[in-house]
Design a binder for these strands. Structure first.
Lengths: 239, 239
DNA sequence: CGTAGGCTTGAGACCCCTCAAATACAGTGG
DNA sequence: CCACTGTATTTGAGGGGTCTCAAGCCTACG
């Protein structure tokens, strides 16, 4: 949406509607579960501060983390068009959320065609991120999977100004990283060791640093298209 | 969209717009590549007949198939909001497509809020399918992956009336199945053998039959929510 | 200072991969 | 109708990546 704004595609009414979305806000604690899989779809959220993730429990008791949300992301759009949640959502650390109702979102789509197109674009973009994960989980080694995930987070954080001197905070435990990447926590640890020995990723506590971001991007063959691309002109013209 | 229609949510104008989408049609041959990754986004398609798939080439020369399209699906929505294709699309067998332009789609969204909401819902639904694949590729055995994929295809085909007496045609080669599931073609073959020995899947040539669909669904722990769910009432009311 | 949870490291096992060869099948030309 | 050829599938053997189980360490926090 900030992309749309930058392109001057938003009317004043549009902006007012967006600001209204953030009218309410609520503090949430680390580890707090916002909702569980299967519950009714009652609200969506703008994540103002903190990290969150959506997840599914598996038969064997472990979980698969589907998506990691960073500040500025919208949580719950995944469930738009469904009556029950397809996945649970929990906070990784403490933060602030701005809940809004599905009715509110529907009204917004009805009122502003531009925002409607924007919502489609957001949904498609999230699909693009999922697609990248699918490609990387399907046929790549643990090093590439972890490296790719870290690099994606790095780019997303940089876009919101959360990378300082090439360093950023990663509040996820290795267990949680394993749940993201489909790896055991044990192997995540070994993989970090390998990436360190190769001089690609240094991690101390929750702080991550890439000595050579370019080399890492090359190793994981990162395709920036799916994250960086601007909205096409078709959005902005009315014909 | 047929879901929306069934709910009587489409006005006559909406229906006219949808029918216009299928104004043009073109025959396509088996194996024909509709577009390559990285090409300009010039058109989307309704797939009227035949199967197609979207794919990405990997470094090692193999490909990852991202999605399999069946008759009635819309091809290329993945790229809506991008200027370049994120993935190539190719036909599996011969068929018919109805191309339409991004401008046409944008106009449709601007004209009909109901259809706009429907497009969001479709995008989210495709995301839900990708999510299921992610869960299954991440942490499941080859048997569960293959079984889950076959069962999903089975349900999608049944919805469009392409399952007769519990049998359906599967035009994908084992190589292609491997590219969908992140497995080698060799292991796909072994996995079919295992599923046959367990009495879950019989396959002769391109014809597939489930002796006990319920047992298969249970083995792969299939969650029908993400495919079957009807659109929520919020779409249909105007408040 | 003690405890709990997260991280590291080691050993053995399993799933799936690669390479290779044999078999089945489809289309082609004789 | 039959040999020929290329492609798809099956089957076998060996190897590698990741898993599980288990023990030890490190850090945070009471």
């Amino acid at each position: 949406m900030q992309q749309l704004k930058r392109h001057g595609a938003l009317s004043e009414v549009d902006e007012t509607l967006l600001i209204e979305l953030e009218h309410n806000s609520r503090r949430v604690t680390a580890g707090e579960i916002l909702w569980q899989e299967g519950s009714d779809v009652e609200l969506f959220c703008v994540l103002k501060a903190g990290w969150a993730y959506s997840f599914r429990y598996l038969d064997n008791g472990s979980m698969q983390i589907l998506k990691v949300y960073l500040p500025g992301d919208i949580i719950g759009m995944r469930d738009f068009g469904f009556s029950k949640r397809l996945a649970g959502v929990a906070m990784i650390n403490a933060g602030v959320i701005c809940p809004f109702s599905p009715q509110h979102l529907c009204q917004l789509i009805r009122t502003s065609p531009t925002l409607a197109a924007g919502m489609v674009a957001i949904a498609v973009r999230q699909q693009a991120m999922l697609t990248e994960r699918l490609v990387y989980i399907g046929r790549h080694t643990a090093q590439q999977r972890l490296g790719h995930f870290l690099y994606e987070i790095y780019l997303r954080l940089r876009r919101i100004g959360a990378v300082e001197e090439g360093r950023f905070q990663l509040p996820l435990s290795q267990e949680q990283l394993g749940d993201v990447l489909g790896l055991s926590a044990v192997h995540v640890s070994r993989t970090f060791s390998m990436l360190r020995e190769e001089g690609l990723v240094l991690k101390e506590r929750q702080e991550v640093f890439f000595p050579d971001p370019g080399a890492l991007a090359k190793m994981v063959e990162f395709n920036t298209t799916y994250l960086d691309e601007a909205l096409p002109p078709a959005f902005l013209s009315s014909d």
